[in-house]
Computed example of a mutant assay.
Amino acid sequence: MTEWDLRKLRILRTLSERGTVTATAEALAMTPSAVSQALSGLAKQLGVTLLEAQGRRVRLTDAAHLVLRHTEAVFAQLERADAELAGYAHGEAGEVRVAAFSTAVPALVVPAVVALRRSHPALEVRVRESEAAESYELLSSGEVDLALSLAAHAPTAADPRFTRVPLLADPLDVALPPDHPLAGAAAGELRLADLAGYPWIFGGSGPWSEITRAACEAAGFVPEQAHSAAGWTAILAMVEAGMGVALIPRMAAARAAAVAVRPLPHDRPRRHVIAATRRGADSAPALSRVLTALREAAAPDGHPAA
């Protein structure tokens, strides 16, 4: 029977994710030559060619992809083993590391941590603010245990490395200048189409630009972008100054005290927030408690995801 070297398999998996030997070495705190030697040794152990030269880079062979398919199942099973071992502590203690995007930290993560400090004071949650791309790199490398992101910017449900956990369907509201003609609209009366002729404020690129454009186009118009900003402080300052209108997630509503915020029940724009774990790790008691606390924090601020 073939002897499988888990350390070398992890190096191969990292190479498939990072694309180059140099990037793999950086991710694993190794030298490029050590990475190359480990992969050469793995190829000899398995008796197949794993890499082929492609210019100055390397390409994974079909045999390497076959090995990786089985490797993901092996690592998932090892995560389950770790989770079962952790179960002996009943999740009452331990450490869970969470990466989350900026608006999720105050709206979801902080309330969850506060609740857990009361119910499970020996359970420590370490929080790291990061956007989706970085969060999933951290999750894949084992530097965090849980990643919060928008569903639209998470790996697909078919990705064998992760388990996705729906958390929240976060409603989008419209932020208007305090003296805007529609600022006094009664609850439920305002529609996105009513704002088609006004200047809009949103990022030039990235998730919030995509969300704003998609919501407005679903309402039948293309928003006129008057100003570009990515941070909520800048966006809301411009709205307050009468420079335009903007969509804001309800999770960020606490920052919008100086502007008029109106719901859009007819259009019902939403963004979906998910948590993700490494596949097989979600049953670990401590991680399960954190997920439960996040779901409970999500429920008062929007519609809990199914």
Rank of each mutant, 00 (worst) to 15 (best):
T31V: 00
P32Q: 03
A132Y: 09
L116I: 07
E210F: 03
M1N: 10
W232G: 12
D5E: 06
A115L: 10
L66E: 15
L138G: 11
R13V: 01
A298C: 08
V110N: 14
L6T: 07
S119V: 08
H303P: 09
S141T: 08
W208L: 11
A299I: 02
A104K: 07
A183W: 00
D267N: 01
V261F: 05
V35P: 04
A185Y: 00
A253E: 13
G94Q: 08
A93D: 14
A293T: 03
L182G: 03
P155S: 02
A187I: 00
R268Y: 00
A306H: 12
R118C: 06
L195I: 02
H90L: 14
G142V: 03
L66Q: 15
T20W: 08
L15C: 08
T163G: 04
L116S: 12
A234N: 11
E3H: 07
R117H: 15
P304G: 11
A132N: 08
R191W: 01
R18A: 13
I235P: 11
F221E: 11
A297S: 12
I211Y: 09
A154N: 02
P263N: 03
A298N: 08
A253P: 04
A81N: 12
A99D: 07
A241P: 12
V96F: 01
L108V: 05
T292G: 13
A38G: 02
A93M: 12
V113K: 12
